[in-house]
Design a protein around this nucleic acid. Structure first.
Length: 255
DNA sequence: ATGGTGGTCCAACCA
């Protein structure tokens, strides 16, 4: 199974990019974040014409997640049980025997802000949810825009970023809490070029200067991480006309 | 050191 994640920053704008990338990369599963459209506006037909099934959990203007897959998606979950949240940030399903958890983790704005507290609370709810999912699904992958750079290697200028948002110790501790459930960051199972990132700020020529972060992650349970043959980031869509500020992150599993 | 870009939707919010 070849699986990928991409924050598209508006599917209305980026649909042509997504279709182009699907045709070039041919993943079995592609999960999207920030589709920024209501579920009813999600264009299932464009994906079925490309040979994919698809579904979305959308909302107006902000957030919104979608899953595009060759195989059928079953046992769909769109909310953490017991955690009421109008923001559409998760889409969980089982595809070809793999539990696929698509996430758009809150950004958090700045350390100590109200949005930051929401982010940490959301991550606690995620931890509780995944703890349960891991009990019932041996093959589980958690992927998406985590809005957390795991460590200094994932930051273009660690001195400058310091312990700011996306890099603060409580955020990194929350990510470690997920790892401690029995998940691993498959990108780091392989030799990677230095300064490989998945997001570059539109401002201040971030991409031209490679001033980026690796905040789009693929975490896999033991049964899957053992079966992971490759994980890499495809920078190319970030070079296209009118790009998303994120680029696809891919993992290949022999399942 | 500051301000820079982009999406949604038209003023202001979010990233």
């Amino acid at each position: 199974m070849k699986i990928a994640t991409w924050n598209v920053n508006s599917l209305n704008v980026r649909l042509p990019h997504v279709l182009e990338w699907l045709s070039r990369a041919g993943p079995d599963v592609l999960v999207l974040q920030e589709i920024k459209q209501v579920t009813e506006a999600f264009d299932v037909n464009s994906f079925s014409a490309a040979g994919y099934r698809s579904m979305a959990s959308g909302q107006k203007t902000y957030n919104g997640v979608a899953v595009i897959s060759r195989g059928e998606a079953t046992d769909i979950v769109t909310d953490f049980p017991g955690y009421a949240d109008p923001q559409r940030r998760i889409l969980v399903s089982t595809i070809d025997g793999v539990r696929v958890v698509n996430l758009y983790v809150p950004n958090g704005h700045s350390v100590g802000s109200e949005k930051y507290e929401y982010k940490l609370g959301w991550l606690a709810a995620l931890n509780a949810f995944l703890s349960g999912e891991l009990e019932t699904h041996e093959k589980l992958v958690v992927l998406g825009d985590f809005n957390i750079a795991p460590d200094d290697r994932d930051v273009h200028d660690p001195e400058k970023w310091g312990e700011d948002i996306l890099c603060s110790p409580p955020e990194r501790a929350a990510l470690q809490g997920l790892i401690d459930l029995g998940l691993s960051d498959v990108f780091r199972q392989f030799e990677q070029p230095e300064k490989t990132f998945s997001w570059w700020d539109y401002r201040a020529a971030g991409f031209r200067r490679n001033a980026g972060l690796r905040i789009d992650l693929i975490l896999a349970s033991r049964a899957l991480s053992d079966a992971c043959g490759a994980s890499y980031i495809d920078r190319e869509p970030r070079t296209w006309e009118r790009p998303s500020d994120h680029t696809p992150v891919i993992a290949e599993f022999s399942v």
